[in-house]
Write a protein that binds this DNA or RNA. Structure first.
Lengths: 213, 213
DNA sequence: GCTCTTAACTTACACCGTATATTTACAACG
DNA sequence: CGTTGTAAATATACGGTGTAAGTTAAGAGC
C-alpha cells in the first residue's frame, strides 16, 4: 500500500515542499491537507514535525533567509558588502515572490541581522548609528521587494519604451531601480561616516580593524 | 424583530466596521460572519455591497489611504512636503497596525501616489528621477512601518536604557528612528538635485515655479 | 391594487486548522 | 524468534471559513 521509495517525513522536507508548493500555487493554495497530499501523507502527520500552521509559515521564512548571502570581509569595502547582502535579499524575494510576502509580517532572522550589523560596526559605525543604518537598509529592501512583487504604482507597464527593450536589458533596468534607493542610503551613510571621522574620531576603531564586541 | 434605529447597510459602513473590527480583534478575527454580526446582519448580506472578501480587504486599504495627508504647496519646501506626507503614512500605520499589514500585498492608491509624484516633479526632478525617488521613499516608508509593527530585530526591548525614558521621550525616539532613514534619502535626493541644477539646467524649471505637468 | 427592484435571509457545499484517538512500523532487547 | 516501547502514520470529528444558490420581505413607481 505504501510506496516503496518514499523518503521519511522530516521538518526540513516539509518546509521545502511547502515552499515549492507556494511557489507553484500561491499562498492561498497552501493548506495542511494539500501539503500532506503533496508529500503522500495525511495532513495530521505533518503535526509530528511542525506544531501548527503558523510555525510552518515561520519555518518557510527561515528556509528562504538561509539563502541570503553576505559577502565576506575579503570583499572591497563595507559598501560592497552591504550592497551585496541586500541585493541577495531582493533576489530571494524575486525567486519566491509568494513566500516572500510572509516577510511582511514575520521578523528577519536574528542571525542574518547580526551579521549585517557587524558589517556596519566594522565600517566604523558606533552601536546606535549602526542600528539606525540597519533599520534604514532593511526597511527599504523589504519595502522595495514587496512593492516590486505587487507592481509599483504609476509605472506605465505597457508603454512603448518597455516593449522596445530586450528582456536582458529590462533586468538591468530592474536592478538599477533598486540600486537607486540603496545607493541613496549607502552614500548618505558614508557621508555621515566621513564627517564624524574627520571631526573627532571619538571611537578608536580603525577602518578595518578585527575588533569584535 | 429588526431593530428600529438601524442605519441601512452600505459599502462605506461595512468598510468602516471592518477596519474597526480588525483594529479591535486583529486580521484573524475578521470573517464575513463575524463582520455581519457586528453590523447586526447575516454574512451574506454583505455581498450585496462588496463582491467578495478580497474586495473587502482592498476597500479597507482605501479607507486608510484616504487618511494620508500631504502638506500643500504653501509648506516650506518640497523636502517638508515629502517628509510630511510619508510621516502621515507612518502614522496611519501606527493607528491601525493590523489593517496596515494589508498594505504589504496591496498597491498604494494611485491618487496619493500621483500627488506625491507631483511634489517631486515640482521640486525640479525630471520624470524618471521623480519615479526613482518615489519608489525609494515609499518602499522605505512601508518597509519601516511593517518592521516597526512586528518589532525590529536586534532591538534590546527590555534594556535598562528603555526603562529610564518617559513615554513621551520614547515617542520622540521612535520618530527619530524613522526620520533617520527618511532624511538619508531626502538629503541624497537634494544633492542629486543641486548637482544637476548646477551642471546644465537642462530642464528649464525654476525651483518653485507653478509649473504643472 | 400591482409589479419591479433591491437587499435581506436561509440553506448548503466544500474546505479549513487541528484536538483526539487509534493503528501501524520499526528498533532494541531478552 | 517473540515482545515491547516508541515514534509516526492514519482516522475521525468539531467548529469554523468563503460563498453559490434559492427564497423572502420591504419599498418605489405606476
Amino acid at each position: 500500500m505504501g510506496e516503496v521509495g518514499r523518503r521519511p517525513l522530516s521538518r526540513r522536507r516539509i518546509l521545502e515542499a511547502a515552499v515549492e508548493l507556494v511557489d507553484r500555487e500561491g499562498l492561498r493554495g497552501l493548506s495542511m491537507r494539500r501539503l500532506g497530499r503533496e508529500l503522500g501523507v495525511e495532513a495530521m502527520s505533518l503535526y509530528n514535525h511542525v506544531p501548527n500552521k503558523e510555525a510552518l509559515l515561520g519555518g518557510m521564512v527561515e528556509v528562504l533567509i538561509e539563502g541570503v548571502e553576505i559577502p565576506g570581509e575579503s570583499s572591497a569595502g563595507w559598501e560592497e558588502q552591504v550592497r551585496g547582502a541586500f541585493r541577495s535579499y531582493l533576489n530571494i524575494a524575486r525567486a519566491h515572490p509568494e513566500v516572500f510576502q510572509l516577510f511582511a509580517t514575520r521578523p528577519l532572522g536574528t542571525g542574518e541581522a547580526l551579521r549585517i550589523f557587524e558589517v556596519l560596526r566594522g565600517a566604523g559605525l558606533d552601536v546606535v548609528p549602526a542600528l539606525h543604518a540597519f533599520r534604514a537598509l532593511s526597511s527599504y529592501t523589504i519595502g522595495y521587494a514587496l512593492a516590486e512583487i505587487r507592481g509599483f504604482p504609476l509605472e506605465l507597464e505597457g508603454g512603448p519604451r518597455a516593449l522596445e527593450l530586450a528582456p536582458p536589458l529590462k533586468e538591468v533596468d530592474r536592478d538599477a531601480k533598486f540600486d537607486y534607493g540603496l545607493d541613496l542610503i549607502i552614500s548618505g551613510l558614508r557621508q555621515k561616516l566621513d564627517r564624524q571621522g574627520a571631526k573627532g574620531d571619538s571611537q578608536r576603531r580603525s577602518k578595518r580593524g578585527p575588533d569584535h564586541r
